[in-house]
Simulated assay, not measured.
Amino acid sequence: MSEFPYPVQAFKGRGAASNPEGRFETIRHHAEDDGWQHAMLDEERPRPQTVVTEERARSVITRNDSPDIAFEQALNPYRGCEHGCIYCFARPSHSYLNLSPGLDFETKLRAKSNLAEVLRHELSKRNYVPKPINIGSNTDPYQPIEKRYRITRAALEVLAECHHPCTIVTKNAMVERDIDLLAPMAREGLVQVFVSVNSLDNHLAAKLEPRASAPHRRIQAVRALAEAGISVGVLVAPIIPALNDRDMEAVLDQAADAGARCAGYTVLRLPYELKQLFREWLALHAPQRADHVMSLVQQMNGGRDYDSNFATRMRGQGVFAELLRKRFEVACRKHGFGRARELKLDVSRFVPPRETSPQGQLF
């Protein structure tokens, strides 16, 4: 018997199977299976369509003081992410928009259409202190809608113009499009790209990350970036025990062969509403091993689905977490990988941009 009080069914091309209310909602909907719903499951339900809303951001650079995160500044061109990765720790952030962390997160997206303009304004402030900006800390800057909106590229153009350092995290091969901007920045020590690859199994990736680039295309992107002289690393993230952990060494092998220079990893994190969504995903796509996966997840989190402790949330704790750590270190030594946070980008070249003015530039 299912642990859910309602029937769940996967949508092709989507990660989530439901749309639960966010944690800030005051009204809760509770579904009861009266037998009639089963008839609906025999028919193909209409697929949720992607809807993008443009928004005018008032600020775009966010600050971070978490001790387990390597960057202090970040910007995210989009809210929500069409990649639909079921494990994405950013899903609960959609609750702040009164939207669901489930299907809403991957179908109801927000594009910050004025990001480049606001970024220019923030970088030009007299009291601004340049520090590397991470692009893609919350949602992927190269998700499919970037092909149309090009907001990430516009941000890179501003950063390149004023010689501001940045890092990029993505699981989409679309990053190759911007090599013409990234290669000159790399020659000045201004950029590093991290490509996230957590498995080499296309069948598994199509369910875990339904609209991200296939694993082999991400490895090809690593090669293209490296051949262009851009410092590139690989993130084996997240590692999900008994699901994709077996691929760790193979991912690092292929990334090293493609030219990656450093590597990092994290384990699965299940904050807030993500616990329910991931359990639904397991019930649909890996029912025979669902209990085993969650048992190992809990072992790495002190007996809970998630532990927010800064000291352990990224790497876990316990025997299985220690095994992952040792496997990763051995593989990194084999390939001479540095740690993902070791590269130092050059902040000394920064030149504050001039804000655009209707009067033009007189001097």
Score class of each variant (00 low, 15 high):
Ile69Lys: 10
Ile69Gln: 00
Phe71Glu: 15
Glu72Ala: 15
Glu72Asp: 12
Gln73Ala: 10
Ala74His: 05
Ala74Ser: 14
Ala74Thr: 10
Leu75Tyr: 00
Asn76Gly: 02
Pro77Ser: 07
Tyr78Asn: 10
Tyr78Val: 11
Gly80Cys: 09
Cys81Asn: 00
Cys81Asp: 11
Cys81Pro: 01
Glu82Phe: 08
His83Gln: 03
Gly84Arg: 02
Ile86His: 08
Tyr87Gly: 01
Cys88Trp: 02
Phe89Arg: 03
Ala90Phe: 14
Ala90Gly: 13
Arg91Ala: 07
Pro92Tyr: 01
Ser93Gln: 12
Ser93Trp: 07
His94Asn: 05
Ser95Lys: 01
Tyr96Trp: 13
Tyr96Val: 06
Tyr96Ser: 14
Leu97Lys: 06
Leu97Phe: 13
Ser100Glu: 07
Ser100Ala: 09
Pro101Met: 04
Pro101Leu: 04
Pro101Trp: 00
Pro101Tyr: 01
Gly102Phe: 01
Asp104Gly: 06
Asp104Leu: 05
Asp104Met: 09
Phe105Tyr: 11
Phe105Ala: 11
Phe105Cys: 06
Glu106Leu: 07
Glu106Tyr: 06
Thr107Ala: 04
Leu109Tyr: 02
Leu109Cys: 01
Leu109Phe: 09
Lys112Ala: 05
Lys112Tyr: 02
Ser113Thr: 07
Ala116Gly: 06
Ala116Leu: 02
Glu117Ile: 11
Arg120His: 08
Arg120Lys: 11
Arg120Trp: 08
Arg120Glu: 10
His121Met: 14
Glu122Trp: 11
Glu122Gly: 05
Glu122Thr: 12
Leu123Val: 14
Ser124Val: 09
Ser124Thr: 00
Arg126Gly: 11
Asn127Glu: 13
Val129Glu: 12
Val129Thr: 15
Lys131Trp: 01
Ile133Phe: 07
Ile133Val: 12
Ile133Lys: 00
Asn134Asp: 14
Thr139Pro: 08
Asp140Glu: 02
Pro141Glu: 03
Tyr142Asp: 07
Tyr142Asn: 03
Tyr142Cys: 03
Gln143Pro: 00
Pro144Gly: 05
Pro144Met: 05
Ile145Trp: 07
Glu146Phe: 01
Glu146Cys: 04
Lys147His: 12
Arg150Phe: 00
Ile151Gln: 01
Thr152Gly: 00
Ala154Met: 12
Ala154Phe: 01
Ala154Pro: 12
Ala155Lys: 11
Ala155Asn: 04
Val158Asp: 14
Ala160Thr: 06
Ala160Trp: 01
Glu161His: 14
Glu161Gln: 15
Glu161Ala: 14
Cys162Lys: 13
His163Trp: 05
Thr167Ile: 07
Thr167Asn: 14
Ile168Gly: 08
Asn172Ser: 04
Asn172Val: 02
Asn172Lys: 03
Ala173Thr: 10
Val175Asn: 05
Val175Glu: 09
Glu176Phe: 03
Glu176Val: 15
Arg177Ser: 12
Arg177Ala: 09
Asp178His: 12
Asp178Asn: 09
Asp180Thr: 12
Asp180Met: 13
Asp180Trp: 03
Leu181Glu: 10
Leu181His: 05
Leu182Thr: 09
Leu182His: 07
Ala186His: 07
Glu188Phe: 02
Glu188Gly: 06
